[in-house]
Amino acid sequence: MSDPGAVGGSVTYQRLVHKNSSGFHYMKVSLVFEKEGKRIDGAFFKQLIISALRNVYGEIGAAFPFDVLKFEEKSLTAVLRVYNSGLVKLWSALTLLGSYQNETCAVRVVQVLLPYQYTGGP
């Protein structure tokens, strides 16, 4: 970000248009279960997302790449990375996820970030 220059007491602002050139979006999500204290690991979490995607979009619709960059087992929060073209699909599949293996759960999307806003760590 460049500093807004102050000219003669009046502040001029600059409009910055950032084209998302890297092609990625980052999502910070947290998983909530009805019963508290459930422990799952990263692999299980990815499996859960893939099954959610398959439920909503089927085999072909769900076959787009995304990554689980980080997963914190304690708080069940994760950072996902997805191509721009897959963002709407991934997000809506997460929204429509209501249960997994007969247990009620929900995915809360905490943040959706562009690459330059992502500085690592959930």
């Binding site: 909530v32 009805e34 709407v88 997000w91 809506s92 997460l94 929204t95 209501g98 009620t104 759960c105 929900a106 809360r108 999307v109 959706v112």
Partner: peptide, 11 residues
């Protein structure tokens, strides 16, 4: 748990 955030719904 059936509630979703407003931005989720916009999506």
């Amino acid at each position: 748990l059936e509630l979703r955030g407003p931005y989720d719904i916009a999506n």
